[in-house]
Write a protein that binds this DNA or RNA. Structure first.
Length: 204
DNA sequence: CAAACGATTTTCT
DNA sequence: GAAAATCGTTTGG
């Protein structure tokens, strides 16, 4: 089986939507506290920087929290939502352009026991990783990984030559961004058709 | 320095 | 299907 990490060139693509779609079927790997877990990304959302009201960086906001998004593509941007949930994003594009892809859901592949333990669950259910906060918890991703390079040993994304056909990619609107007004209508959410681990969200 | 607000999850009805 | 929980970050005074 081929196990190659995605290159910097992949993340630095200037079209965040392209990257969001390309990440479907890729493998998110964490190696935290010597605990190896891997899961296939099945759902993503694109956040298109300063022009996107749903983005934390809308209008060029650059705060202590969001500054990570301004880095060159290929680092993790993890932030806390509702005081509890760690949301994992992949920063894309070049330095100074705050584009990011939110990883919303993944299908567990390796380290199942570890994920179950982290989530305090006994058996595998789609709820283990369906949803951005749940997935991050299962993978051991927390806000202290913000700014971590995705070419580091503890957190990276690899390509196992899984091909997602265009007709198996479903496009929809993003979740939880109703406040973003017209930008809430943008077709920036992508998921793999029929996959059980896609979060419920609001569907279409 | 104080107030308001979520890129959500879980639980209860 | 609907509502509550919960706290760091951001924004205003």
């Amino acid at each position: 089986m081929v196990m190659k990490k995605l290159s910097a060139r992949f993340y630095e693509n200037d079209d965040v939507v392209t990257v969001a779609k390309a990440l479907l079927g890729k493998i998110l790997v964490t190696n935290i506290n010597n605990e190896y877990t891997a899961a296939m990304i099945v759902e993503t959302e694109a956040y298109a920087g300063v022009a996107d009201k749903a983005s934390h960086a809308f209008g060029g906001r650059n705060t202590n929290r969001t500054k990570t998004m301004y880095q060159a593509g290929g680092v993790a941007y993890v932030y806390l939502c509702y005081g509890i949930h760690h949301l994992f994003n992949v920063v894309t594009n070049l330095e100074g352009t705050p584009h990011a892809v939110l990883i919303r859901a993944a299908e567990p592949l390796d380290g199942l026991g570890i994920m179950l333990e982290r989530r305090g669950k006994e058996k595998l259910t789609p709820a283990l990783t369906a949803g951005p906060g749940a997935m991050s918890a299962a993978m051991g991703i927390t806000t202290n990984l913000t700014g971590t390079s995705l070419s580091s040993g503890k957190l990276y994304i690899e390509d196992r030559d899984i091909i997602i056909h265009e007709q198996d990619i479903v496009t929809g609107t993003r979740v939880g961004v109703a406040y973003a007004q017209e930008d809430a209508m943008r077709p920036y959410r992508f998921w793999i058709k029929g996959n059980k681990y896609v979060s419920k969200g609001k569907g279409l």
